[in-house]
Amino acid sequence: MNEREKGGVPDDALIRMTLAGDDGAFGELVERYKGRAFAVAVGIVGDGDDALDVVQDSFIKAYYKLKEFRFGSNFYTWFYRLLVNQAIDRWRKSARSAEVPFDESWLAEDSSPPDGFAYPRTPENLARDRELGDALQRAVDALPEYHRAVIVLREVDGMAYDEIAKVLGCSVGTVMSRLHYARGKLRETLKSHREG
């Protein structure tokens, strides 16, 4: 098995191979980033089907814009900027704000809780988690688009502040400010949910 088959080829090499006519190399980039891209897209647009469309459109756009990629930059950051812009555009055009259904697989037995944390999987706990998940999704859906994007990139995708700044085309200070605002709004909503 060669290095490419093992998935050890750096992004820059895959980009060069794609530009040289090897479409399979771009397929490897898609495989490498499609899961994270979907998580970000669904967090912004709020609907799984729309998120799939956003991810597909973003990869197509990236493929055709690949000749504009500046080597020395990070493909991930460059691609996610396209993705976030595409997702925000889709979200703006959408007449609805669909919710992402709570997925019980998130509570599966193989997703172990932190050490020392006992959490019995009772029907009551599952129902409470479902309600909390729904409330959280509604709170994220209610955020203004750029606050929504920054919370998704940070909390869902785990991006660093400087990466988010590059993706959104703003300063790190702006990222921090938007994140602070978004977290505050989510806290308010969840506090109201707990009290209600």
Rank of each mutant, 00 (worst) to 15 (best):
Asp89Ala: 14
Ala98Asn: 10
Tyr146Asp: 10
Thr77Ile: 14
Lys67Asp: 15
Gly35Met: 12
Leu19Gly: 13
Asp103Gln: 06
His180Arg: 15
Ala20Val: 00
His180Lys: 15
Lys191Trp: 09
Phe71Asp: 12
Ser112Ala: 13
Val167Ser: 06
Thr174Trp: 12
Met17Asn: 05
Val45Gln: 00
Gly35Tyr: 03
Asp115Thr: 10
Trp91Asp: 09
Asp129Phe: 10
Tyr181Asp: 14
Arg4Glu: 14
Gly48Trp: 02
Arg4Ala: 14
His147Trp: 09
Arg32Tyr: 05
Thr122Arg: 07
Ala118Cys: 07
Thr122Trp: 07
Lys65Gly: 10
Tyr63Leu: 07
Asp12Gly: 08
Val172Gly: 05
Leu143Ser: 03
Asp129Arg: 03
Met176Arg: 15
Leu153Pro: 03
Ala87Leu: 02
Met1Ser: 15
His147Ser: 12
Glu3Thr: 07
Ser177Tyr: 14
Asp141Gly: 04
Gly173Ile: 13
Ser97Val: 09
Asn85Ser: 12
Ala98Tyr: 02
Asp129Trp: 02
Tyr76Ala: 11
Asp50Ala: 03
Phe117Asn: 04
Met1Thr: 15
Arg36Leu: 15
Leu136Ser: 07
Asp23Asn: 08
Glu188Tyr: 06
Val54Asp: 01
Lys166Ser: 11
Glu5Cys: 03
Leu168Asn: 05
Asp129Pro: 00
Glu124Met: 08
Asp11Tyr: 02
Lys93Met: 03
Arg32Pro: 01
Leu83Lys: 04
Ser171Gly: 14
Arg4Ile: 07
Ala25Ser: 12
Val150Ile: 11
Pro120Arg: 06
Ile151Gln: 02
Thr122Phe: 09
Asp49Leu: 05
Arg121Ile: 05
Leu136Lys: 00
Val172Trp: 06
Tyr146Pro: 10
Phe117Tyr: 13
Trp91Ser: 13
Ala62Tyr: 00
Ala37Val: 09
Ala139Gly: 05
Asp49Asn: 10
Val42Cys: 02
Val9Tyr: 09
Tyr119Met: 11
Arg81Phe: 01
Glu155Thr: 05
Ala118Phe: 14
Ser73Gly: 08
Leu179Asp: 08
Tyr33Gly: 07
Ala142Met: 06
Glu188Ala: 13
Tyr76Ile: 03
Leu179Thr: 06
Ala160Lys: 10
Tyr181Asn: 11
Val42Gly: 01
Phe26Cys: 01
Leu19Tyr: 05
Ala95Lys: 09
Ala182His: 02
Ala149Lys: 00
Ala165Lys: 03
Val175Asp: 00
Ala62Pro: 01
Leu14Lys: 05
Met1Phe: 11
Asp129Asn: 12
Gly46Thr: 04
Asp49Ala: 10
Ala95Ile: 15
Phe117Leu: 11
Pro120Asp: 13
Lys166Cys: 05
Ala39Phe: 10
Arg90Leu: 00
Ile60Cys: 02
Arg70Asp: 08
Asp53Phe: 00
Val45Asp: 02
Leu168Gln: 07
Leu168Phe: 09
Gln86Ala: 14
Leu132Asp: 04
Asp103Ser: 08
Arg36Trp: 09
Pro114Ser: 10
Ala13Met: 08
Val84Ser: 05
Val156Glu: 11
Met159Trp: 04
Arg16Leu: 06
Phe59Tyr: 06
Tyr64Arg: 15
Lys67His: 15
Glu188Cys: 07
Ala39Trp: 11
Arg194Trp: 04
Arg32Trp: 00
Arg130Gln: 05
Ala108Glu: 06
Ala98Val: 00
Glu195Val: 14
Lys191Met: 06
Glu195Leu: 14
Asp23Val: 12
Leu168Trp: 06
Ser111Tyr: 13
Asp57Cys: 05
Arg154Trp: 12
Leu52His: 12
Gly184Phe: 11
